[in-house]
């Protein structure tokens, strides 16, 4: 079992990049521990800025630093970063086009038992709706590393959501297929296309294996790039299949499911089922308990595909 959460993979990339690029700065809102960024703060104290528990300030200060030539990475729990400082993300980052990377940590229902205040089930919808904001949801630590290696080099705003807990590897460390803004195809199939992002990619992949045993051929797409969305891959996968299922750790509105439905509806109409968290405060529990309760697991996804095909 992998013990390295995606947030730690982010820290490792930033730590390395900051050695040669003195303009890389990390900003936290009393969140260096939860963001796994304490090692960065220790290794690069001159490139680390503590803002205190003030997420609006975190984002505006980051935008100002970018204006003055820095490459800021602002890390804070996704629940606060994506909504408490939403307007700062909209105006100071996206609208003013400042090179700020917003790192939403412990996203989705990572803080399972802490209640709805700590869940970020709205961040995909919120961030995707802002012009000039890119939105990324990497699935495992290796993909997170590849993504971050691209993001430390570019000059545009982005929001990145990662979970709190380590997740099983999807990819091999030495052989992680990655192309910026192109979804990764895990397998191809002719009966169903399963499109997932973030922590839902793992159960999607396992669902395809279950389905295979039932004689059902499913493709799985790791849509880590919600915006710009890889529409081409969605259309290609949907065209090859009879039904489409999207899976995400997000509210049922405005996220991956909504976007997949739009693309399929406009380009290759067929049945789409969107699997997501409910439009309600989620039950209390660990991530795994919550996912299992709502059927956001391999069995649930496989079951949904079979239901659609029957």
């Amino acid at each position: 079992m992998n013990k390295i959460p995606n947030r730690q993979a982010i820290c490792e990339v930033l730590n390395e990049a900051a050695k040669t690029d003195k303009n890389i700065v990390v900003l936290c809102s009393d969140s260096r521990g939860s963001a796994s960024l304490a090692p960065f703060a220790e290794a690069h104290p001159d490139q680390f800025v503590e803002v205190g528990i003030a997420e609006q300030n975190l984002v505006s200060i980051s935008a100002g630093m970018a204006k003055a030539g820095k490459r800021p990475f602002a890390a804070s729990p996704a629940c606060f970063l994506s909504t408490r400082s939403y307007e700062q993300a909209k105006v100071d980052v996206a609208y003013s086009n400042t090179n700020v990377k917003l790192i939403g940590i412990s996203g989705g229902i990572s803080y399972g038992a802490l209640g709805m205040s700590h869940h970020s089930a709205q961040d995909f919808a919120a961030m995707c709706a802002i012009p000039n904001m890119r939105v990324y949801v990497p699935s495992d630590r290796h993909q997170t590393k590849k993504l971050m290696e691209e993001l430390v080099k570019d000059e545009k705003p982005a929001y990145i959501r990662v979970g709190r807990n380590p997740v099983e590897d999807i990819y091999d460390e030495d052989d992680t297929p990655f192309e910026m803004d192109r979804a990764t195809v895990l397998c191809e199939g002719t009966d169903a296309a399963i499109i997932a992002c973030g922590e839902m990619v793992r159960p999607a992949k396992e669902a395809a294996e279950i389905l295979k045993q039932q004689g059902i051929s499913a493709s799985v797409l790791d849509m880590y790039c919600l915006k710009p969305l890889d529409k081409e891959s969605i259309i290609r996968m949907a065209n090859a299949a009879k039904v489409v299922v999207s899976v995400e750790e997000h509210a049922p509105f405005g996220g991956l499911g909504s976007m997949v439905s739009q693309v399929v509806g406009e380009n290759c109409p067929k049945k789409v089922a969107t699997m997501a968290l409910p439009d309600a405060p989620v039950i209390t529990g660990t991530s795994m308990e919550v996912f299992n309760y709502y059927g956001l697991n391999a069995e649930g996804i496989a079951g949904k595909v079979m239901e659609l095909l029957s």
Binding site: V25, V49, Q56, N57, S60, I61, S62, A63, G64, M65, A66, K67, A68, G69, K70, P72, E87, Q88, V91, D92, Y95, S96, T98
Partner: peptide, 20 residues
Amino acid sequence: EMNSGSLGHGLPVCVGIAKA
């Protein structure tokens, strides 16, 4: 330098510029 319109943004942004 920066887009504005929504109030309460200029000072925090300037804190970032001044800090940098």
